[in-house]
Design a protein around this nucleic acid. Structure first.
Length: 218
DNA sequence: GCGACAG
DNA sequence: ATCTTGTCGC
């Protein structure tokens, strides 16, 4: 049963939020890391999951799924638009990644249950959210050197970090999804960004879902 | 009430 | 997300 209205979807988030495991530290530099992303064209979409070796960052496995868009985009409800296809792609995976890096947010969310949290609860795997643009929360501009960061706060809580992954380049917005802690999440993001602003996982998944979408339209 | 708003 | 040209910089 998938929510068919904004009200229903918000209720689902509220009901799943208690299932998050936010205790203990999350895995630091797991042996395998997965990146997920979705590309759209009208009412069609293509989802991609790419598993990389946590050390060499080489591609170990990749899966794509195409289908119809099942939920319109509503800020705060992105998960209902992307999760159906992403979960299916993850199920077709042979390997079980030690961490999943999502495009978007985790705890830094209006109801503290963004895409990364939702995917974590559904898969039982550690997840983190890496957003490319601000969504919720307030923050100060982090220092210019790579590795500099500032707190992302929402109401009185620290819900994430604004992290500089490249000297003088726009920062990314990191928040915890499930089975992960903020400090470790940032260390993982830095390990995944040896030469680009965005994690190699999201770059690989982005390229793959765009190719899959183009091919599916042929 | 009005505007802003991950991808 | 996607629609779009040229352009600056590593």
């Amino acid at each position: 049963m998938w929510p068919s209205s904004v009200t229903e979807a918000e209720a689902v988030q509220e009901s799943l939020r208690p299932r998050l495991d936010l205790t203990g530290p999350g895995p630091l530099r797991p042996s395998t890391v997965a990146g997920v992303d979705v590309a759209y064209a009208g009412d069609r979409l293509a989802a991609a999951v790419v598993v990389l070796d946590g050390t060499s960052l080489e591609v170990l496995e990749q899966v794509t799924v195409t289908g119809p868009v099942a939920f319109g985009y509503v800020p705060g409800l992105l998960a209902f638009r992307e999760l159906p296809s992403l979960v299916e792609a993850l199920e077709r995976l042979t390997l079980t990644p030690g961490l999943i890096v999502c495009d978007g947010y985790g705890l830094a969310h209006p109801r503290r249950f963004g895409l990364a949290c939702h995917l974590g609860v559904l898969t039982g795997l550690p997840t983190i959210g890496v957003g490319k643009t601000p969504f919720v929360g307030t923050f100060d501009e982090p220092g210019l050197p790579r590795g500099s960061w500032s707190e992302l706060r929402l109401d009185g809580d620290v819900v994430g970090r604004v992290l500089r992954t490249r000297d003088g380049v726009r920062p990314v917005y990191v928040s915890v999804g499930d089975r992960m802690d903020l400090e470790t999440a940032c260390h993982n993001v830095l390990a995944l960004t040896p030469r680009h602003r965005l994690p190699e996982t999201t770059r690989a998944a982005d390229r793959l879902c765009r190719r899959a979408l183009a091919d599916s339209l042929t």
